[in-house]
Computed example of a mutant assay.
Amino acid sequence: MIGGLAFALVFGRRKRSDEIIAGVLAAMRAWTGLIYHLMFFAPINKMAYAFAALFAIQVEAFGYVGVIQRRMTFGRSNCPEAWIGIALVLYAAVIYPLLGVAAGHEPAELPAFGVTPCPVTIFTLGILLLTIRPFPRPLLIIPILWSLIGGSAAILLGVPQDWLLLASGS
C-alpha cells in the first residue's frame, strides 16, 4: 500500500512528495531489514544479521538524503531509464506475485511485496530510476549488493520471480 503511494506521488506531485517517497523507501527497507531479516531470516541464516545492518544503513541514508536534506527529486520523464523504472516497479508489485503463483507457490508462501528483500529491492531500484535530479550514487550500493546476493540465491533456490533481481542491479 505505501509502495503504491510512493509510485502515485511520482506522477501526482504534491507538496513534499519527494520526502514522502524517500520516507516510503526508508520504511520499506526498515521493515525488511529489521523485521524480516532479524525476526524471520536470522534463525535459519546467521548472515541475516549482516543483511539487517545493511538495510538499516540504507534506511538512514534514505532518511538523511531524501527526507532531511531533500536531495532526491522524483518524477517521470520520457528517458529510457524512467520506462525501465516503471517496469521494475510494476514487476515488483504486480508481476512478481503472479510469477510465484505460476511457479506453483501458494499465495501465503510468496515473498511479499513491501515486506521481503527481493521485491523491495526491485521496487527501490525502479523508484530510483524515476528520479529527475541526480542523487548521491552511494545510495545505490546496498540495493545493487542485495540484487547480487538475492539474485544468486534465487537461481540456487529456484525462485524464478527473483531472477530479474540480478538484471535490476546492473
Rank of each mutant, 00 (worst) to 15 (best):
M1N: 11
I2Q: 04
G3Q: 05
L5N: 11
L5P: 02
A6F: 10
F7N: 06
F7R: 09
F7W: 14
L9K: 04
V10G: 05
V10Q: 08
D18S: 11
E19G: 15
E19Q: 15
I20T: 13
I21C: 06
I21Q: 01
A22G: 06
A26W: 01
A26E: 00
A27Q: 02
M28P: 00
M28R: 01
R29I: 15
W31Q: 09
W31D: 00
W31K: 10
W31H: 11
T32P: 00
T32G: 09
G33Q: 06
I35D: 09
Y36F: 14
Y36Q: 03
M39P: 03
F40Q: 15
A42Y: 05
N45F: 11
N45P: 01
N45M: 06
N45G: 02
K46P: 00
Y49M: 02
A50C: 11
A52Y: 01
A52G: 02
F55V: 02
Q58H: 12
E60M: 12
E60C: 09
A61Q: 08
G63C: 03
G63E: 03
G63T: 12
Y64C: 05
G66L: 01
G66T: 06
Q69P: 06
R70Q: 10
R71W: 08
M72H: 08
F74I: 02
R76E: 07
S77V: 03
C79W: 01
C79P: 03
C79H: 01
E81A: 03
W83C: 00
W83S: 05
I84P: 00
I84H: 04
G85W: 03
I86M: 12
L88S: 05
V89A: 00
L90R: 02
A92Q: 02
V94E: 04
I95D: 02
L98S: 11
G100I: 07
A103P: 00
A103W: 14
H105P: 00
E109W: 13
L110I: 11
G114I: 15
V115C: 08
V115A: 11
T116K: 07
C118G: 15
P119T: 05
I122S: 01
F123V: 05
T124D: 07
G126Q: 11
L128D: 05
L128R: 09
L128C: 02
L128Q: 10
T131A: 09
T131H: 07
P134L: 09
F135V: 03
P136Q: 13
L139W: 08
I141Y: 15
P143H: 03
I144E: 10
I144L: 11
W146D: 09
W146M: 11
S147H: 13
S147W: 09
S147T: 15
I149G: 02
G150T: 08
I155W: 14
P160E: 14
D162M: 07
L165Y: 15
L165T: 14
A167W: 13
S168R: 09
S168F: 11
G169M: 05
G169F: 10
